[in-house]
């Protein structure tokens, strides 16, 4: 469904979700996919490091492990809301983490009142940090939050959960213009909706762009 055949590498992807349904699960699915794909591509059992910026301090270890994520290779940072941008930049600029998931959404009962208007500058710096690399940054945002300007991300995917096992998704923004209309998806646990795109292919396309 995604234009690159998976989550874009070398860019910042925004996953805009209606409400808080399924955002964390999809973020963790992306982490699991990155850990497995990178470990397989290097022919090693050692999984690469990913990071999760958990400003609401609610990420739950048994659920993360049940999502297939290697807990010992997922760095969790729980900054206050005003430090989320700074922390995300440090993680992305270090070059250590294959995927950095930044949760700007919170959860039911623990929402994040996060001003996205000031996050544009941070997103630009995040883009510069991962540009030309095989690493990605995934922003989890609320599609309903009003903003004066869209975030300067490389790709924006909007997701709605219409039923327990059904999603509808659309690519609302793509840096190469490959937007799509709303498309229904069948969601089951473990489906590779956000597996990373093949690194070589995207690198070539990125050069052309």
């Amino acid at each position: 469904m995604l234009p690159d055949g998976g989550l874009m590498r070398g860019g910042v992807v925004e996953l805009a979700i209606a409400g808080s349904g399924l955002g964390t699960t999809l973020g963790l699915a992306a982490v699991r996919a990155f850990q497995q794909r990178e470990a397989a591509s290097f022919g090693t059992r050692v999984k690469p490091w990913c990071a999760f910026v958990d400003a609401s301090s609610t990420l739950y270890a048994p659920g993360v492990a049940a999502s297939g994520v290697a807990l010992e290779r997922l760095l969790v940072v729980r900054p206050p809301a005003e430090a989320v941008g700074r922390v995300a930049l440090k993680l992305a600029e270090s070059g250590v983490f294959e995927l950095v998931v930044v949760d700007l959404l919170g959860t039911l009962g623990q929402p994040l009142d996060f001003p996205l208007a000031r996050f544009g500058r941070v997103v630009r710096r995040l883009s510069m940090a991962v540009d030309g690399t095989n690493k990605s940054v995934l922003l989890l945002t609320d599609v309903r939050v009003e903003r004066a300007l869209p975030l300067p991300v490389a790709q924006r995917i909007e997701l709605t959960r219409s039923a327990i096992d059904r999603l509808s998704a659309r690519v609302a923004k793509d840096r190469r213009g490959r937007v799509s209309a709303q498309r229904p998806l069948v969601w089951t646990r473990g489906s590779a909706v956000l597996a990373p795109a093949a690194s070589e292919g995207t690198a070539d396309v990125r050069k052309l762009a």
């Binding site: 900054p79 922390v87 250590v96």
Partner: peptide, 29 residues
């Protein structure tokens, strides 16, 4: 990037920034 060298440094920086108890990996008890 030398992950083994850079990772402790990033963690130390983050711990100094947001607090030692706010950075780590999750563990099931």
């Amino acid at each position: 990037t030398d992950v083994e060298k850079e990772l402790p440094l990033v963690i130390a920086e983050l711990a100094a920034d947001v607090g030692e108890t706010k950075v780590g990996v999750l563990k099931i008890l």
